[in-house]
Design a protein around this nucleic acid. Structure first.
Ligand SMILES: [Zn+2]
Ligand SMILES: [Zn+2]
Ligand SMILES: [Zn+2]
Ligand SMILES: [Zn+2]
Lengths: 133, 133
DNA sequence: ACACTTTTGACAATGGTTCTCATGCTGAGT
DNA sequence: ACTCAGCATGAGAACCATTGTCAAAAGTGT
């Protein structure tokens, strides 16, 4: 390995102002938001295609959480890095992050019991919050 | 009350041949299928719109289970009437219905604890089955 | 057969998401 | 600071699952 070899020029994920804007928008707002909502919230200053691309990247990188609402639309939210689930208000969207060791244990046990490996799961809880009652 | 009064003529959900065909298609095949797949499986003998309408009805009536694949598309499957969840193989799609009283209890408790009412939830477990390992 | 309601299906219309590609920027090297 | 290759952007087209429209077809009770 020649020491002169440049570090392969690692492609690059550039911190462009658009990407920063999308990330900031997620920081600024609570709850889950669709790509279109973020696009609007930014006053259209960031192209819709770019918003979609950025959100997909962030989600793949694990920096944001992506889930689907009941209509199957993708919605995103800045989340803590640890594994958790959501309790979402059907009416106002207010979201609470919840953890459930019991559930994690249960899913793993059930999966193992049936011979399934590489287990993952999705769990979302929907309801109507106090303020919307 | 005049005896001539017809019993309110209760509209009716007619067991048309199209509806029966869709239901039969679900019976015949294992695993989850999209509306379009069912439409094709029926050789287009049942209009796509009708397939969609029928599946929606069946799902609302609780006769079939609807979930969304990772692309957000709706997929349906004939299921037992009781509330349950699925353990799905990412590779071959083989599905196992699982029940988890503990999970049900946990979600309700968590929701109540945070003041949420009318609670519902979605929980799917993904993994690789023994045959696909 | 008649009057009336439900259902169907071809096709149009929606709407979220992705693709295209010409143009804009960035950044490393000079 | 200047250059150039390549990543990034965005306007709009393209996709595609799903829903809406509505006239024709089928079913129901009399
Ligand atoms: Zn609420
Ligand atoms: Zn979990
Ligand atoms: Zn399998
Ligand atoms: Zn459950």
């Amino acid at each position: 390995m020649t020491s002169t070899e440049p570090q392969a020029q690692q492609s690059g994920v550039r911190p462009t102002k658009q990407r920063l804007a999308v990330a900031a928008a997620l920081e600024a707002t609570a709850g889950f938001h669709s790509a279109q909502e973020i696009h609007e919230q930014l006053g259209g200053s960031v192209g819709l295609a770019t918003v979609y691309r950025t959100l997909t990247m962030l989600a793949d990188a694990g920096d944001v959480d992506m889930m689907r609402n009941e209509d199957g639309e993708a919605i995103y939210r800045r989340c803590s890095g640890t594994h958790h689930h959501h309790l979402v208000c059907r009416s106002c969207g207010h979201t609470v992050e919840v953890e459930g060791p019991a559930v994690e244990r249960w899913t793993n046990a059930i999966a193992a019991e049936h011979g399934y490996a590489d287990v993952s799961h999705t769990l979302e809880i929907f309801g109507t919050c106090r303020d919307c009652r």
